[in-house]
């Protein structure tokens, strides 16, 4: 695609400095090691391939989460969303889930979406916690604004973290009720909700960094809906 860089300079959003998320490893309930790490902008096309099948999965609102996440990642890749990042969880190199968000400004973080490909292992919960950790501990923000588009998300975020309802505040994802996680609330909940160990053993990290492996479309659907659709 030909790009007019003069015009592009006008269209591209200026970015804030964002220190990278330091990778960590989480031991799952089945003892598998999930490496959580940030991806680079150039990894987005690969990641879109694993998101695409979810657009056709209405179960648990995967379709709306997937569609919006797809657009957000594409927006980041095409320099149309500012200050965005994406963290992925990898087991044996394969993507098992991802989260994204962005900096609204220096103090406020925006939680965008959480997508678990492998289910039943708290992958989504672990990745969401990693996202909160990034905003509060590494980006040094004061609060993170969060909304939920699925009942599972509502249970995992609003209830488990005891998030604070923001009356009269709209999250940029739309008009659904907006909640926030403050620094105090984060550190209060961290002992029971934020897992993981650093540094990641070099062998594991090398495997994760070497390439982003993704399941086939059929496998992604099966992982989300179960072998028997249950």
């Amino acid at each position: 695609m030909t790009v007019d860089m003069e015009l592009e300079a006008v269209l591209r959003a200026p970015e804030l400095e964002m220190p990278p998320y330091p990778p960590k490893v989480i031991t799952l309930a089945n003892s598998k090691k999930m490496v959580v790490r940030p991806i680079k902008r150039e990894d987005v096309p690969t990641l879109l391939k694993v998101v695409r099948p979810t657009l056709d999965i209405p179960r648990d609102y995967y379709d709306i989460v997937g569609a919006r996440l797809y657009a957000e990642l594409l927006g980041w890749y095409r320099y149309r969303v500012r200050n965005e990042y994406c963290l992925i969880g990898q087991v044996d190199g394969f993507v098992v889930g991802m989260v994204n968000g962005r900096m609204w400004d220096q103090n406020i973080g925006i939680s965008l979406h959480t997508l678990a490909i492998d289910r039943g292992l708290h992958v989504g919960a672990h990745l969401f916690a990693s996202k909160m950790e990034y905003h509060i501990e590494h980006l040094g923000q004061q609060e993170v604004w969060i909304t939920a588009e699925s009942p599972i998300g509502f249970r995992r975020w609003m209830i488990e973290y005891g998030l604070i309802k923001q009356e009269g505040v709209q999250h940029e994802l739309g008009g659904a009720t907006s909640y926030k996680l403050t620094r105090d609330l984060y550190f209060e909940t961290k002992p029971r909700l934020v897992a993981g160990v650093r540094p990641v053993p070099q062998e594991l990290l090398d495997q994760a960094m070497q390439s982003i492996l993704i399941a086939s479309e059929a496998e992604v659907t099966e992982k989300i809906c179960g072998v028997k659709g249950r």
Binding site: I26, T27, L28, A29, N30, S31, K32, G120, L121, H122, A125, H126, A129, P191, R192, L193, V194, A195, G196, V197, V227, R230
Partner: peptide, 23 residues
Amino acid sequence: SHVEMMITKEGIHDHRDAIVNNP
């Protein structure tokens, strides 16, 4: 069976991450 997933003692008890895996 409803639940077809294997779990380990490490993942639900012994490892420090078990506090999140097995609340």
